[in-house]
């Protein structure tokens, strides 16, 4: 399914475009998303989504397929799998920065989302609604990030928010209906607990194989 979002930001196109160099900041704009680390050109991400009683914890990769500085377009691909095996999702996101005036930039985000697995049973309508809520929130956060970026790189900017050009200047807005975020720590702990047993067995096997 294809979802279209756009927003206008009060910043020149060069400054808005510069944000794409900070992938971590862009990822942290996604509600419920945590940046885990980098593997070559791939960025590892975890996204926790909770809708009513249903929850999913996607682990996946984000990579830039294309980044055309001249045309101000970028193609980003994300793939993810739920830890509980509920679903896998992949998305191709086309971002385009268009200058409206010298100080305003229009950002167009087109997301092509595909989903398989048990969660996909909920039907396109429901998934599309949830996805577009997430993307709407994402674009709002991205908007705030671009503003913060623009403010920080503006000459002579003295506002306190402008003093932090790093990702801390980005406002991660709370999405009450999606309950995103606070559970990540708890689920990570459970994942560690679950992983502990196989790791233990592996270590035992290794020790036995090595020394006996």
């Amino acid at each position: 399914m294809i979802l279209n979002n756009e927003f206008v930001v009060e910043a020149p196109v060069e400054r808005a475009w510069a944000l794409l160099d900070e992938v971590e900041s862009v990822i942290s704009c996604m509600p419920g998303a945590t940046y885990i680390g980098r593997e070559g050109g791939d960025y590892k991400v975890s996204i926790k989504v909770k809708v009513g009683a249903i929850s999913a914890n996607f682990q996946g990769m984000v990579q830039f397929l294309e980044k055309n500085e001249a045309a101000r377009t970028a193609k980003i691909r994300g793939t993810g799998k739920d830890l509980g095996g509920k679903a896998s999702a992949s998305a191709t996101i086309n971002v385009k920065f268009e200058p409206v005036t010298a100080a305003r930039t229009k950002v167009l985000v087109e997301t092509d989302l595909a989903m398989t697995g048990r969660l996909a049973q909920f039907g396109g309508g429901v998934i599309a609604d949830i996805a577009s809520r997430l993307i709407e929130q994402f674009t709002q956060n991205l908007h705030a990030a671009v503003l913060a970026q623009a403010a920080s790189s503006a000459p002579g900017a003295a506002a306190p928010i402008a003093a932090t050009p790093d990702s801390s200047g980005i406002t991660q807005q709370e999405v009450p209906e999606l309950n995103l975020g606070p559970v990540i720590a708890a689920s990570a702990l459970r994942a560690v607990k679950r992983a502990a047993v196989p790791v233990l067995f592996f270590l035992m096997g290794w020790i036995f194989g090595r020394f006996f």
Binding site: V51, G52, V126, D129, P176, N179
Partner: peptide
């Protein structure tokens, strides 16, 4: 009623 399976009820 906020959306599919989503309500104003907090967790």
């Amino acid at each position: 009623f906020l959306g599919p399976y989503m309500t104003a009820r907090k967790s």
